[in-house]
Design a protein around this nucleic acid. Structure first.
Lengths: 215, 215
DNA sequence: ACCTGAACACCGTTCAAGT
DNA sequence: ACCTGAACACCGTTCAAGT
């Protein structure tokens, strides 16, 4: 007969799932993905250790749900970065890479979760697969357009170019996550510029092949 | 007054440290780096859960010791691959990349451990830092030589080229660890060829800049 | 339908005590 | 010097029972 108080401990009636995702993200930010504990999330929300298992079958499913949210945001960021870009196909290609890297830099915890393939069930989430695929498709499309417009040599294998572009961008993002830049003599403040310069160099190299074509 | 039996359970007197490293590697191969448990390693060796802590101050130190061994082997593999290479500086550069990638493919557990920066204390191990640095230096040296010999345009920034090469190679290795190739339509059996083709494409692009120089 | 309480089989780590 | 045994504060997960 007593009405539940407006905001406080309203989790108990419907939004525990969302609250768990938020608590888990907070834990990931504080301790990294491995530090996410279902029990600790429950404790912070004032529910029993068993309560989360009504909403997620296991820890992996909770992590996967976080990855879904993250991949959605990455997809939107890359799309946005493409929408703003008014240049040619080569510049659109750069734009996809810069958008991806910028998001990875600004949301390291989210990016870590997407990358933690051992802690999420990527194949088990259609949304996750779709989001990741869309980002890849935008890269491949820009590359094909660049070749069609004569900005990159047409003889080069489109799939190989795409894989090179992806390996470079993913490599840069992971080098940051895995703390490689310090050993490369690049201070944290210089990382964004170094990433964009590397990306620009790759695009320059690709564009150089078109000039050879005309020679 | 009883002499210890020759081989069986000789860990108890001197080589428990090495036995722990071997048991931990076996666990890493079976369950991944996160699955390495100090207790389980001790159990498999028939010692108490506290025994390992005489040899490693904590789990992280055990993981770091494994990473030291791994980085040593990677360094040797890359060096070997360079020794066998009789071609020019550009071919030496490819060789470093191929050696790195081949090792990563053949020893995924070891490579995972080196990459698991959140589970090891890289800065705390001089040997680890040294091994990683040497591999980087071999890349940078081959690149500089290629520029000096006119095989890559001299105007290009050597540091930027090195970072691009590293990002590409590390990206490829991580894409395999993180199971990205399936989504790129590349079957496991085709991964080595795809990696080498991507590497070859990058070197080709770099070499194309030298031809432009001469034009 | 959603949550609690208690339980089970695990962890990493510490520390006094044994040889 | 090296290891044991017991303890502490944690995990993920299950399940009967409560509302």
């Amino acid at each position: 007969m007593v009405m539940p108080k407006p905001a406080a401990r309203s989790y108990h009636h419907g939004n525990l799932r969302q609250a768990l995702l938020e608590a888990a993200l907070e834990l990931a930010q504080q301790r990294g993905p491995e530090g996410v504990s279902v029990r600790e999330a429950a404790r912070r929300l004032g529910v029993s250790p068993a309560a989360p298992f009504r909403h997620f079958p296991n820890r992996r499913a909770l992590m996967t749900a976080m990855a879904e949210e993250a991949s959605e945001r990455l997809r939107i960021e890359v799309r946005k970065s493409l929408t703003r870009e008014k240049g040619n196909a080569l510049e659109r290609l750069s734009s996809v890479g810069r958008g991806y890297l910028q998001w990875a830099r600004r949301h390291p915890s989210h990016f870590r979760i997407i990358s933690a393939r051992d802690q999420i069930d990527i194949a088990g989430s259609a949304a996750l697969v779709r989001n990741v695929e869309e980002v890849r498709d935008l890269t491949v499309q820009a590359l094909r357009a660049a070749q069609a417009q004569g900005l990159i040599a047409a003889e080069l294998d489109a799939a190989a170019l795409a894989l090179l572009a992806r390996a470079t961008v993913y490599g840069l993002a992971r080098m940051q996550l895995d703390d490689h830049f310090g050993q490369w003599g690049i201070a944290p403040a210089a990382v964004p510029a170094a990433m964009n310069a590397t990306l620009a160099l790759l695009v320059t190299l690709m564009a150089a092949t078109a000039k050879l074509d005309r020679a």
